[in-house]
């Protein structure tokens, strides 16, 4: 291969990388005059989150930490900021029609955390998707986390 050909290939690769095409997963959105890459966050089920989306983006960590102590130490259940409920309502369907675990970059929490360079240890213990129940026929089905209780 001549140097010239290598150069052309390199330029082509560079162009493909810089000029966003249709296939790219990260959408480009316009904010004001600037063009910024934003994370592709899958939408939760239903119309609303447990609080305003704005509030959730900024404060979900504090609310989760507060409620986890209340639940575990005092036994207070049924309040809005339950991790089990986040996972149930924000389940994202994968290619196999089952909800993805946090191993997938598509997972709701990861979609944003990867972008924001946040790492959490919650899913070392907590299930990152709703309980999966397999019926006798071997067909997978999904039960919302809450339905088990």
């Amino acid at each position: 291969m001549s140097l010239r050909r290598i150069f052309i290939v390199l330029v082509a690769v560079f162009m493909a990388w810089v000029v966003p095409g249709e296939a790219q997963t990260v959408p480009e959105k316009k904010i004001g005059n600037n063009s910024v890459l934003l994370p592709a966050i899958p939408r939760g089920q239903g119309d609303h989150c447990v609080a305003d989306a704005d509030f959730m983006r900024r404060n979900h960590m504090t609310m989760l930490m507060h409620q986890r102590d209340e639940t575990v130490r005092q036994g207070i259940r049924g309040k809005p900021f339950s991790l089990k409920e986040c996972v149930a309502c924000h389940a994202v369907e994968g290619p196999d029609a089952m909800p993805v675990t946090v191993a997938s970059p598509q997972h709701f929490c990861r979609a944003c955390h990867d972008y924001a360079a946040v790492s959490i240890d919650c899913f070392q213990c907590h299930a990152s998707r709703p309980d999966v129940v397999t019926d006798a026929g071997g067909q997978g089905g999904v039960v919302r986390g809450a339905a088990r209780e």
Binding site: V87, A88, T101, C125, H126, A127, P130, R148
Partner: peptide, 9 residues
Amino acid sequence: IEDQKTYAP
């Protein structure tokens, strides 16, 4: 551990 129950982390 993987695939914990949602109610029993």
